[in-house]
Amino acid sequence: MRIYFTFEPRPDLRDPLVAEFPHVDFIFETGLSIDELQRADVLVTYGEDLNNENMNYATNLKWIFVASAGIEKMPAQAIMERNILVSNVRGIHKTPMAESMLAHILAIKRALPWIYEQQKKSEWSKKAKQSELRDSTALILGLGAIGSEVGRLLQAFGVTTIGCNRSGKEAAYMDNMVCFDQLMEALPKADIVISVLPKTDETTHLLKLEHFKVMKSNAIFMNFGRGNLVEEDTLNQAIQAGEFGYAVLDVFEQEPLAADHPLWSLPNVIVSPHISSHSSRYVERSLEIFKPSLEKWLRGEKDLDNVMDLSRGY
């Protein structure tokens, strides 16, 4: 059994992994090598180094473990044609991403960006426009591990949570539920609108200008899912027209965001360069998911955790 990592875990994470599975040949490299890809039975990757061309060399590959939640950059058709099983680290992002979202919300509510600017100017002023998070209402689009975790944290702050998914089916830490078709009725109630939706055909440009027009004028809009949720021209138009109060954006239709893009300079926009999931414990948590699946795989089992359906995109 030859397992090829296209990234190198820290020694304190790598060495225990090798010791725990002494009969496995582990190869650790930074970046993808065609020679190693040809020999690998299992590939462990962040999912951005595979393409249709190099998949032609993956003749022995039977399982791809993706140390990421999204697979939109992977050659899905080529993988499906070869009947390669794919699993990922779904759920790993819930702690850092929920903390990132909560940090941004509290920063806006308690006027921290303004306070930091005053400090730079050495200006003593008490004119901060501060408000409270308690008794707010949050509408959360996408109710997997991340959406449920941010719902749990917000409820602890006294926030009413409305969950939104395709079916409207009940989800953890949501006080009320709506489906996509009910967004126009739910958006006017929300002080905070958070999207953690995956990239699918159904979520592409789900939000249109009419949706932003019914939001509260002081609402906070946060996109931490995928940039396909809304066309950037539409989003920019809604912000410029003052349809809502603040935007916190971790994802964009085109990444990286161009240096001359107007979103960089708008005073009520926070650009987070797709880093809300980053954490010093990221690889540690990935391996906590990988190891039990590897044990199953070595026993000949295929019911691994987080097996993905590439035809659906998640």
Rank of each mutant, 00 (worst) to 15 (best):
L102K: 07
A98R: 05
R90N: 10
L85V: 14
Y46F: 14
P113I: 11
L43I: 01
L112Q: 15
Q77N: 10
P75I: 10
N56T: 15
K129A: 14
A145R: 14
A111R: 14
S122K: 13
E81M: 05
G144P: 12
P113M: 09
P75Y: 10
L102D: 01
K109D: 08
S125C: 13
A128P: 09
N54K: 09
G47F: 05
E48Q: 11
E53T: 10
A78S: 15
D135E: 14
E132H: 07
N83D: 13
N83C: 12
Q38K: 15
S125K: 15
A138F: 07
K109A: 07
N88A: 04
L112W: 14
A103M: 11
R90F: 01
R134G: 00
H93C: 08
K109W: 04
E72D: 15
M97V: 12
L143W: 06
V89C: 10
A98L: 09
M97N: 03
L37T: 05
H93R: 05
L43Y: 02
Y116E: 11
E99Y: 13
P113F: 06
F65Q: 15
A78R: 12
N56F: 07
W114P: 03
W114L: 09
S136T: 11
R39V: 00
A69G: 08
W124A: 11
E53H: 06
K121V: 05
R110P: 01
A111I: 02
N83V: 05
S125R: 15
Q119N: 08
A69H: 02
V86Y: 08
A145V: 05
S100R: 09
H104Y: 15
I115K: 10
N54S: 07
Q77D: 11
R82V: 01
A40M: 07
K129R: 15
Y57M: 03
E99V: 13
P75M: 13
I115L: 12
L37N: 05
L50M: 07
L37P: 01
K127F: 13
L143Q: 15
A76P: 01
N52W: 02
Y46S: 08
H104V: 03
A78F: 02
I84D: 02
N54R: 06
E99S: 13
R134V: 04
G91A: 08
A76L: 14
D49N: 04
I115T: 13
I79F: 04
S87M: 06
K109C: 12
A78D: 12
L61S: 09
K73A: 14
W63P: 01
L61W: 02
A69T: 14
L85R: 07
A67I: 05
E132Q: 12
F65K: 02
K120L: 13
